[in-house]
């Protein structure tokens, strides 16, 4: 039985910004990235080399309650 171990496809390494839902691809291996669309900053982890995961926000820069997010 041959099992595909690694996801292959156009969305390798992509994450989705939880603030504006834009998909973007952080540079492979980075631990932080800002959404190119709205600027919200995220911490990134990598369960596998090609698979990015949004670990959590960068709390220091997280939008304050009620603060709007600038969507480009």
């Amino acid at each position: 039985m041959k099992i595909k171990k690694v996801m292959e496809g156009a969305r390798d390494g992509e994450i989705r910004c939880l603030a504006c839902f834009t998909r973007f691809r952080p540079k492979r291996g980075v631990d932080r990235a800002a959404c190119p669309s709205c600027g919200v900053q995220w911490r990134i982890s990598w369960p596998y080399p090609k698979t990015a995961r949004l670990q959590g926000p960068v709390w220091e820069t997280y939008p304050k309650p009620g603060e709007p997010i600038a969507k480009k």
Binding site: M1, K2, I3, K4, K5, V6, M7, E8, R11, P47, Y48, T51, R53
Partner: peptide, 17 residues
Amino acid sequence: EELINQIISSKVSQTMQ
């Protein structure tokens, strides 16, 4: 085999692994 490939090739399953 087909089913397993369908399941574990998703990003969700890989993260759960």
